[in-house]
């Protein structure tokens, strides 16, 4: 929490202001990060963030506020999970506990779909790991910015990382705002809505019926499409994205589970490593 405030350390800040205009007064921070991200696509190809990335309240707050719309969308997804958990026979407390501790939507939905009596423990735990292994890659992608943070700040943030706030955080950090605590802040609001909507979903299980009829099943895809539009950076993204598209579609038809996400991401990174000099 050292580099907490933007205004109390003018000397330390002065140097960085020249590099990056991420140090507006707190009240303007939210709108500032928004307008920065609009200029992001044009400047996104420069080497990432060696400017200062700090971990403080301003980042938590910005992450929390920016995360609200996404978290509301995730709430719809959480209701869907709650409904499915209720149908699998989980109590309100059990479903809420799972949402509060696992906090990984896709794996939770798959887990309650595998749920039976007796519980297939090994299958559920193994599948959960396989489905969530993609988070290793997502976390690793944050390293260019997170290397400026302390280990406890990094690992605490990663605990509340889910697909949606990870994507939001990548957008934020690529815009150069330097909010190292953005993942934590957006994760907290996501966690609140995720756990809350799970409870609602379990309680409303009988009334709600089939989640797909409200389009809840499309929320994750919609979030990712929207953020992909923002991350689009013209020619430099074209090749890795095409590689990811091709390999993931093929892998999805050949392999079970969600291995295709890891394979698509790794294939794109591998191609970029090979192409590096050209």
């Amino acid at each position: 929490m050292r580099n907490d405030s933007e205004s109390d350390e003018p000397a330390a800040r002065a140097a960085s202001t020249a590099v990056e205009d991420g140090s507006e007064p707190p009240s303007a921070a939210v709108s500032a990060s928004k307008s920065e991200s609009q200029s992001g696509p044009g400047s996104g190809s420069e080497p990432p963030a060696d400017e200062d990335v700090s971990f403080g309240w301003e980042g938590v707050r910005t992450g929390f506020l920016t995360g609200i719309p996404i978290a509301i969308g995730v709430g719809g997804y959480g209701i869907a999970f709650g409904v499915l958990a209720a149908q699998a026979g989980l109590s309100v407390a059990e479903a809420a506990l799972m949402s509060a501790t696992v906090l990984a939507g896709a794996s939770q939905i798959i887990a309650v779909e595998l749920w039976a009596d007796p519980i297939p423990i090994a299958a559920i735990v193994a599948t959960t790991f396989a489905v969530n292994l993609r988070y290793s890659l997502m976390g690793a992608a944050l390293q260019p910015w997170f290397r400026h943070l302390e280990p406890r700040q990094i690992y605490a943030s990663l605990l509340v990382m889910a697909d949606e706030n990870w994507a939001l955080t990548m957008r934020e950090l690529k815009s150069g705002s330097g909010y190292g605590a953005f993942l934590l802040g957006s994760g907290i609001v996501l966690w609140l809505l995720w756990v809350g909507s799970t409870v609602v979903g379990v309680l409303a299980g009988d009334v709600v019926g089939e989640p797909a009829q409200y389009g809840f099943d499309f929320i994750l895809a919609a979030v990712f499409v929207a953020l992909a539009v923002e991350l689009w950076d013209g020619a430099s993204t074209l090749v890795p994205w095409l590689v990811a598209l091709g390999t993931s579609v093929v892998a999805a038809t050949v392999l079970p589970g969600r291995w295709y996400i890891l394979i698509g991401g790794l294939a794109a990174a591998a191609v970029e490593v090979v192409r590096y000099d050209r």
Binding site: L220, L231, D233, T237, P240, A244, I261, E272
Partner: peptide
Amino acid sequence: DVLPGAIMIAVLAP
């Protein structure tokens, strides 16, 4: 550096 976008595409495409 290309991981974020690539992962999003890999989630979405299939």
